[in-house]
Design a protein around this nucleic acid. Structure first.
Lengths: 248, 248
DNA sequence: CCAAAAGTGTTGATGCTACACCCATGA
DNA sequence: TCATGGGTGTAGCATCAACACTTTTGG
């Protein structure tokens, strides 16, 4: 069952998505276990980032969107390019070659991949395993081991960019439900950065940004004083670099 | 005279380099005027970024290096990826198509390009116009008009990244001679950022970083007190993001 | 009443801005 | 001696880190 749309597919360029989620405690990455389709006699439980070759009529961003939507059903989401990865040997590990030969029309073609990273609210979306990847897992970021191809490298680049972004731009909200407590946000920062931030200073600084609007709602069913819930509101954000803004 | 090495060249992936220089007053970009080689009857004075299709055995970084070296003779230099540009219509402007048909083996192939940006010391190197580009110009960044393909977009991305880098990392030095005065560095920052920085505070902050080592040399032949020259020394630079370092 | 987390204030240290002034050199 | 830029110092303000304490809920 090789690729349909063969004439519409560019054999030399692919996209791969690092999709981050946060379950309240741990940072998660969406990984797929690639399968060998027809060749059921071969075992391959290698985990990889979701990705695909691009089609001739689509932009890179669109290709990444397509992969993401196919996997999760999500349409509009925070999705940003990481960069291109083009090591000539990036497909030459043994297991990777086996897989390529089983699945690709031109298994020997050199492929440059463009990495993307996405931030999604893990609770809102149910993963729907689609097409080429039967098994989809939210995997704890901290215990990711060896992935297929050069995907560890892509993941490393993604986390670096995520930390930087979290530090300077209001993006953490994308990983949370629409309404969230400051404690929730605080946990997220503490988990993703590996810093121990002062709880009280964090709260003050966040509120000062003007990006948070308080709602009239509170936590429910907690065995302590329920926290107020906030929403994120976009505010003018001119000259990040000029103002040297920071978020923790 | 179409491409040699046809079987070694990947028709779908190219690199393009934004090469910055600083002449003491203005920020410059290295542009090439593409020519039509055999088709001398057609006029085309469009300026483009230097670039080329990648070869099958080379990494993206290597391809960018090759372009840079071919043009300037420089080997080791600050060269960093900007990202991939893959709009399906990026090659479809009229003049661009004419050029592609004259020069490329597969003029209709879709090409994704990977942008790079380089910082070089403009004075140390003489441009040697090589092969495919007869005319090479140091062009004032501020007055760049419409370039070929999507190269304005790539240039925009590059300047954005340059400003950010300059703000947070010690890279300005790469644009200057090995020994330079603080005034020289100050002019560079003032020009590239569009800020009016306080001269005295700038000096203090720069010196405090520990990246500058004073030499025993001074400016010569200036009609005022000659300034001391400094060199850049690498120092440990751990946790930029943690320390919220800034350079002006 | 207790545990557990929400939420508010304060203080001292640091760093930065916005200045004014003197110095050395060539013409 | 003048013009030009080099080089140093400082006072006040803003910001941030490191703290302790009170409040509100469920059990």
């Amino acid at each position: 069952m090789k690729e349909k749309f063969l004439n519409q597919t560019n054999p030399n360029v692919s996209v791969d998505c690092v999709i981050f989620g946060f379950d309240g405690v741990e940072l998660k990455v969406l990984l797929v276990q690639r399968d060998l389709q027809d060749n059921l006699e071969i075992q391959d439980d290698t985990l990889v980032l979701p990705g695909d070759l691009i089609r001739d009529n689509e932009d890179l961003d669109e290709a990444a969107s397509r992969v993401l939507t196919g996997l999760t059903g999500i349409r509009s989401v925070f999705l940003e390019q990481i960069g291109a990865f083009g090591n000539p040997n990036r497909l030459s590990k043994g297991k990777d070659r086996t897989w390529l030969e089983a699945v690709r029309l031109k298994p020997d073609a050199r492929v440059i991949t463009v990495g993307y990273f996405a931030l999604i609210n893990i609770k809102n979306y149910k993963i729907k395993p689609a097409g080429f990847a039967k098994h989809v897992v939210w995997h704890d970021y901290k215990v990711v081991e060896e992935l297929g191809f050069d995907h560890n490298e892509i993941l490393d680049a993604a986390i670096r960019i995520l930390r930087n972004k979290l530090y300077r731009e209001p993006v953490g909200f994308k990983l949370l439900p629409r309404k969230f407590s400051l404690h929730h946000l605080y946990c997220l920062y503490n988990e993703i950065m590996d810093a121990e931030i002062d709880r009280r200073n964090f709260r003050r600084r966040m509120l000062k940004t003007g990006f948070l609007k308080e709602t009239d709602e509170f936590q429910e069913g907690v065995p302590h004083k329920p926290a107020r819930l906030y929403t994120f509101v976009k505010k003018e954000f001119e000259n990040v670099s000029r103002k040297n803004f920071k978020f923790y």
